[in-house]
């Protein structure tokens, strides 16, 4: 009697277990479905572009002028280069600052300083990008114009600085976690060999935290590529090919944001904006893929 009871209960438990497992599995793969859905949407809406525009022109021409009366142009090269320019520019400044700040917080700052600074840096991440855009228009842009004695401060360098400011909290926060979690025994071993703190930080601690720092930089970079509002406001909104760091530009994201609201539905212009979205998607995907490969390579043996 008792035996059969136990057997019955076991069966029920087994179904319950399976059910719970299935529920979590569905949640787990939900992200995959959403991702595929977005990708499918971008491809489906973007694809009709290429009925009128050759894919070669789309990917190699620098002329973006879909609403021209005489000869419309659908080349995205200028915008891709603009996006890359502000992204790389922002990293040039946010990566060193971010890692240095993270190293300070993790290794040098006392507990009190850390407890004040870390939340403050994290609040920086929560400032809406529109507000950062304001900052670019009224403060950073004019300052750049004055400092370099140029007429217009809304340009690549302005966008880079703003994106850098937005990427810094991500880079600091994740890098700090990575540096803090480097075991103390590595530092002790280094110091016991007669090296100073600075040398230990540069040669042992930071390299040991490199996988985490790489992840931090990639996340910061992902944010910079995808950021729309601030770069739209602060880079001058010019679709020409960027000729230097003082050129006004327009990024891929800004183009979508500006034009999608006014474009007639189901025209080539409309579809081309989705095609730009697909390009953006692939760029961020590539960044993530590369960072994954880098992480695996450096993570070897850990």
């Amino acid at each position: 009697m008792e035996n059969t009871d136990i057997v019955k209960e076991n069966k029920w438990l087994k179904y319950k277990e399976k059910g719970i497992e299935g529920f979590f599995f569905l949640n787990g793969i939900l992200a995959v479905f959403i991702l595929l859905g977005i990708f499918f949407l971008l491809i489906r809406e973007g694809y009709p572009t290429f009925k009128e525009v050759s894919i070669v022109e789309f990917l190699t021409s620098t002329r973006w002028n879909p609403t021209s009366y005489s000869q419309s142009g659908y080349g995205i090269v200028s915008m891709v280069v603009s996006t890359l320019a502000v992204t790389i520019g922002s990293l040039l400044f946010s990566v060193p600052v971010g890692i240095a700040a993270a190293a300070y917080l993790a290794e040098i700052a006392g507990r009190k300083e850390r407890e004040i600074l870390k939340p403050v840096i994290e609040i920086l991440a929560s400032i809406p990008s529109v507000v950062i855009g304001f900052l670019g228009i009224v403060l950073v842009g004019p300052a750049i114009a004055r400092f370099f004695n140029i007429s217009n401060g809304l340009n690549v360098i302005n966008g880079s600085i703003l994106l850098g400011i937005m990427a810094i909290p991500t880079i600091v926060s994740i890098s700090e976690d990575a540096i803090s979690s480097v075991p103390d025994k590595y530092k002790q071993a280094s110091l016991a060999l007669g090296t100073n703190r600075w040398h230990t930080l540069i040669k042992v601690t930071i390299p040991a935290a490199l996988s985490g720092i790489t992840a931090a930089v990639m996340l910061g970079m992902g944010r910079a590529i995808g950021e729309t509002m601030a770069v739209l406001m602060a880079t001058g909104n010019a679709t020409a090919f960027p000729k230097g760091i003082f050129t006004s530009i327009r990024t891929l994201t800004a183009t979508i944001a500006i034009e999608l609201g006014e474009v007639p539905y189901n025209t080539t212009h409309y579809h081309s904006l989705f095609a730009i979205g697909a390009v953006l998607f692939m760029m961020t995907f590539l960044v993530n893929l590369v960072s994954d490969i880098v992480l695996h390579k450096y993570g070897e043996g850990e």
């Binding site: 025994k185 590595y186 002790q188 071993a189 280094s190 042992v204 390299p207 040991a208 043996g301």
Partner: peptide
């Protein structure tokens, strides 16, 4: 040291 602590290099 007590625990072997080679660098992750």
């Amino acid at each position: 040291f007590q625990d072997p602590n080679p660098f992750p290099k």
